[in-house]
Simulated assay, not measured.
Amino acid sequence: MAETITRSPRTRGLRTRPSAAEDRPPKRAEVSRQQILDVAASLFRARGYTETSLRDIGAQVGMKAGSLYYHFASKEELAADVLRIGVERVHEAVASAVAALGPGAPMKARIEAAISAHLETLLVESDYTSAHIRCFPYVPPSLKAQLSQARRDYEAIWRRLLDEAAAAKALAPGIDAEVARLAILGALNWSLEWFDPVRGRPEELIRTLVAAFTR
């Protein structure tokens, strides 16, 4: 039940000025680490790594740039968390989508599930994954090194999947499994540059890739 508030005739119908507590920007302790990560992921996705500053991120969460150091030692440390989460989320999505079909599922269906899960995470579900794809080529070498294991772990899913497809003769004739992996992931990640979410999920791209690389 909503609380009933009685106002005097003098104040009824008038907007009262917010209290000092309501009017002030949030303190650093009131802004959670998760809020900062979410804002950073959104800005990294939209602008890229080099064009996003700590000042930009701080402005979005209502903090001065210097106050962000309460949570993160540097922009690089913040970006490392955002990009790591991004690759972990797509890893989990693809692994879950393939596993849900069961080990006896046709290879074509498993590859289609992996493609669909990658696209869904990249384009619809996660600013973090989109930020990873957009920013990784431009981050410092030290940050790339920090992310290398997480990226290798995710790539291993695709290597295993496509190697199994090749062994089952489920790849299109003349298609090498490693070339297929690079081509599929390249096409999926490039969709970030042209896909319009207003038009819905990119079913045509999914069908095209499955038809091009499987039989």
Rank of each mutant, 00 (worst) to 15 (best):
T4G: 01
T6V: 15
T6E: 14
P9Q: 04
P9F: 03
R10S: 11
T16E: 14
T16R: 08
A21V: 14
A29D: 11
E30L: 05
Q35K: 09
Q35T: 13
V39T: 14
A41W: 00
A41N: 07
S42Y: 09
S42F: 12
R45P: 02
R45L: 11
R45W: 06
A46Q: 15
G48M: 06
Y49S: 00
T50F: 00
T50C: 08
T50W: 07
S53H: 10
L54F: 10
R55L: 13
R55Y: 14
A59T: 14
G66S: 10
S67I: 01
F72I: 04
S74D: 02
K75P: 03
E77S: 10
E77T: 08
L78M: 07
L78I: 04
L78H: 00
A79D: 01
D81W: 10
L83G: 05
L83S: 03
I85C: 00
V87R: 08
E88N: 10
R89W: 05
R89A: 07
V90K: 13
H91K: 07
H91C: 08
E92V: 11
E92N: 12
E92G: 04
A93Y: 08
A93F: 02
A95W: 12
A97W: 06
A99V: 05
A100Q: 13
L101F: 01
P103Q: 07
G104F: 08
A105V: 15
A105L: 12
A105Y: 09
M107F: 15
A113N: 03
H118E: 15
H118D: 14
H118M: 07
T121R: 02
L122W: 07
L123T: 00
V124K: 06
V124G: 02
V124R: 11
Y128A: 09
T129L: 06
S130M: 11
S130Y: 15
A131C: 05
R134S: 13
F136V: 14
Y138I: 00
P140K: 05
P140A: 04
P141R: 05
P141M: 08
A145V: 03
S148M: 13
S148C: 04
Q149I: 15
D153C: 04
E155G: 11
E155R: 13
E155A: 14
A156T: 08
I157F: 10
W158K: 11
R160I: 13
L162M: 09
D163V: 11
A165L: 07
A165C: 01
A166S: 13
A166D: 05
A167N: 06
A170H: 03
I175Y: 01
I175C: 12
D176G: 14
A177D: 04
E178W: 10
E178Y: 13
E178L: 11
V179H: 08
V179Q: 02
V179N: 04
L182K: 11
A183M: 13
I184R: 01
L185W: 01
G186N: 00
G186Y: 09
G186T: 10
A187M: 14
A187L: 15
L188D: 06
S191L: 11
F195C: 10
F195G: 01
D196F: 01
P197E: 00
R199E: 10
R199S: 11
G200Q: 04
R201W: 06
E204T: 09
L205E: 09
I206M: 02
T208P: 02
T208N: 02
L209H: 00
V210E: 03
A211K: 13
A212L: 09
F213M: 06
R215P: 00
